[in-house]
Amino acid sequence: MRAQRAAVDMSAGALATRAGISRSMMSRIERGLVSPSIEVLDKIATVLDVPISRFFADQVRRLDLSHVPAGKGLKIERVDAVQGYHYELLGHLLSGNLFVEPYLITLSKDAKPYPTFQHPGVKFIYMLSGRVKYRYGSRTMEVKAGDSLLFDARALHGAEVLRERPISYLSLVFTLRE
């Protein structure tokens, strides 16, 4: 609760006042000395603008931080059907039930279209440069620098036509641990 309050830059006294409880009660709640009622938790959650379930999450076990200085991401060279697609892993989060993998993907001049990627999770793509005709399942769309896509990655997807080079984009893959 203290972390949630700090995130919105609110004092314990201000939170107590807005939630309609005493400052001493707020202090005892934050120190784990009392177990507040659901009604009190609901009032506090409303003031903090968070779901009440947030107070029951184990935040300590779910904290990861990945810092990758510019140009220092892990380079991954693909030699299969996506040869010429250069991946730079920009970090990763593996804690809890969610895996997050952000990649900077750059297509070399010899890269070929590859519209048949398919894997578990949700993918977010943000085009940095270039223009492609992108396939998602049975749909195609023109995607250019500044455009973004967000989709379920279980469907076949990928660049079907490489229209304008150089092509680079951020790709973030979110996968739940089974």
Rank of each mutant, 00 (worst) to 15 (best):
M1T: 05
M1S: 08
R2W: 00
R2S: 09
A7H: 07
V8E: 07
V8Y: 01
D9R: 14
D9S: 14
D9F: 05
M10W: 01
S11N: 06
A12Y: 00
G13H: 02
G13A: 10
A14F: 06
A16F: 03
A16L: 07
T17S: 12
T17E: 14
I21G: 00
M25C: 02
M25I: 03
M26T: 06
S27R: 03
R31W: 06
L33H: 11
L33S: 13
V34M: 01
P36S: 05
P36D: 04
S37E: 05
S37T: 12
I38D: 03
E39Q: 12
E39V: 05
L41D: 03
L41V: 09
V50G: 00
V50C: 04
I52G: 01
I52P: 00
S53W: 07
S53Q: 12
F56G: 04
A57C: 12
A57Y: 07
V60E: 11
R61K: 15
R62W: 06
R62V: 09
L63P: 05
L63G: 09
D64L: 08
L65V: 15
L65H: 12
V68W: 06
A70G: 09
A70Q: 13
K72N: 12
K72G: 07
E77G: 13
E77C: 14
V79A: 11
D80R: 12
A81W: 13
V82D: 02
E88A: 09
E88T: 02
L89H: 04
L89R: 01
G91Q: 05
L94N: 15
L94Y: 12
S95R: 15
G96E: 06
G96F: 00
G96A: 08
N97K: 12
N97R: 12
E101N: 09
E101S: 07
P102V: 02
Y103H: 04
Y103I: 03
L104H: 11
L104N: 01
I105L: 06
I105K: 03
T106L: 11
T106C: 07
L107G: 02
L107A: 00
S108A: 08
S108N: 03
S108R: 02
K109I: 13
D110P: 03
A111N: 03
K112D: 08
P113C: 09
P113N: 03
Y114G: 05
P115F: 09
F117V: 11
Q118H: 13
H119C: 08
P120Y: 13
K123G: 07
Y126K: 10
Y126N: 01
M127D: 04
M127K: 02
L128M: 13
G130P: 04
G130K: 01
K133E: 15
R135L: 08
G137D: 14
S138W: 02
M141R: 12
K144Q: 13
A145S: 10
G146A: 03
D147F: 06
D147A: 10
D147S: 13
S148Y: 13
L149M: 11
L150H: 13
L150K: 14
R154I: 11
R154P: 00
A155P: 01
H157M: 08
V161E: 15
V161M: 10
V161K: 04
R163Y: 12
E164W: 10
I167K: 02
S168Q: 10
L170E: 06
S171R: 05
V173W: 04
F174C: 11
F174Y: 14
F174G: 01
F174E: 02
T175V: 15
L176I: 14
L176S: 11
E178D: 10
